[in-house]
C-alpha cells in the first residue's frame, strides 16, 4: 500500500503516514485553504467593526479618510499587486523546475514586499506627526464629528497593522524559502512550500485590495485626487 518515493536527490519528500505524493499534496492544499478561511474570518471581525461604525458615523469616517494619502495608497496597492505577480511567476518557475528563475522571482517578491512595508511605515510616521493616532495626543485638524473620528483611525491602525503583521510573517517565511530554493530543495516534482506560501501571499494581497478602497477612498469627491 504505502509506496516510498525517493526523488533523484536523496531527500525523501513523502511522509510516512501518507500513501502517495498525490494524497500528501492534496492534504497540504486543503489544509492551506482551510487556514486561509480562518484568516478570512479573522479579518472579518475587523471588517464588521468597520462597516458598523462607518454606517453609524459617516461624516467622521469621510473626513478622517480624507486625511490618508490617496497617492501613496494607490501606489502601494500597485506595489503589492506587482509582488503578487512575481509570486505567481515564482510558483510557475518552480513547477517547471527552473531554479534560478524561482530564486529570482522570490527575491523580487521579497523586495516588493519590503517597499510596501517601507511606504506603510512612512504613512504611520506621518499619522503620528499629525496627531492622528488614537489616544491622548489625538487631534484631528478639520475632522467632522471629532468625537467619532478616532474610531476611524483605530480601525485604520487595527486593520493595516494586522495586515502589516501578516506581511512581516510572510517576510520571514519567504526569506527561509529563498534560502531553501537557492540550495535546490525544490524540484518540479515537489515544491509544496513555495506553492503554499504563494497562496498565503496572494491572500494578504486580497486583504489589501479591500482595505485600500475602504480606508483611503471614502467620499473623495470634495477633495479630489490629492
Amino acid at each position: 500500500m504505502a509506496s516510498q518515493v525517493v526523488p533523484h536527490e536523496e531527500v525523501v519528500t513523502l511522509k510516512h503516514h501518507f500513501a502517495n505524493d498525490e494524497q500528501q499534496l492534496d492534504a497540504s492544499t486543503i489544509g492551506m485553504w482551510v487556514f486561509l478561511v480562518t484568516e478570512i474570518m479573522f479579518f472579518g471581525g475587523l471588517f464588521l467593526a468597520y462597516f458598523a461604525y462607518r454606517q453609524a458615523y459617516p461624516a467622521a469616517f469621510a473626513s478622517a479618510s480624507n486625511k490618508t494619502n490617496l497617492w501613496l495608497g494607490a501606489a502601494n496597492t500597485t506595489v503589492l499587486i506587482c509582488s503578487s505577480l512575481t509570486m505567481a511567476m515564482a510558483v510557475h518557475s518552480a513547477s517547471l523546475g527552473k531554479r534560478t528563475l524561482l530564486v529570482l522571482f522570490l527575491i523580487l517578491t521579497l523586495i516588493l514586499g519590503g517597499v510596501f512595508l517601507g511606504v506603510k511605515a512612512y504613512e504611520y510616521h506621518d499619522k503620528w506627526v499629525h496627531h492622528e493616532v488614537p489616544g491622548a495626543h489625538f487631534d484631528c485638524e478639520g475632522c467632522d464629528d471629532a468625537g467619532h473620528a478616532p474610531l476611524f483611525f483605530s480601525l485604520y491602525f487595527g486593520m493595516t497593522g494586522l495586515h502589516a503583521t501578516h506581511m512581516l510573517v510572510g517576510f520571514v517565511i519567504l526569506s527561509i524559502i529563498i534560502v531553501q530554493a537557492s540550495r535546490g530543495k525544490f524540484t518540479a516534482k515537489w515544491y509544496t512550500p513555495v506553492e503554499m506560501f504563494g497562496l498565503y501571499w496572494h491572500f494578504v494581497d486580497i486583504v489589501w485590495i479591500f482595505l485600500f478602497p475602504l480606508l483611503y477612498l471614502i467620499d473623495r469627491s470634495h477633495t479630489g485626487l490629492k
Binding site: L70, I81, C82, A88, G224, L225
Partner: peptide, 20 residues
C-alpha cells in the same frame, strides 16, 4: 498571469479615480 496583472493595476487606478 500578465493579463490578470494588467487588469488588476488598471482597476486599482480606476477605483482611485472613481472615488473622486
Amino acid at each position: 498571469y500578465i493579463a490578470v496583472f494588467l487588469t488588476l493595476i488598471a482597476m486599482t487606478w480606476v477605483t482611485a479615480y472613481v472615488s473622486t
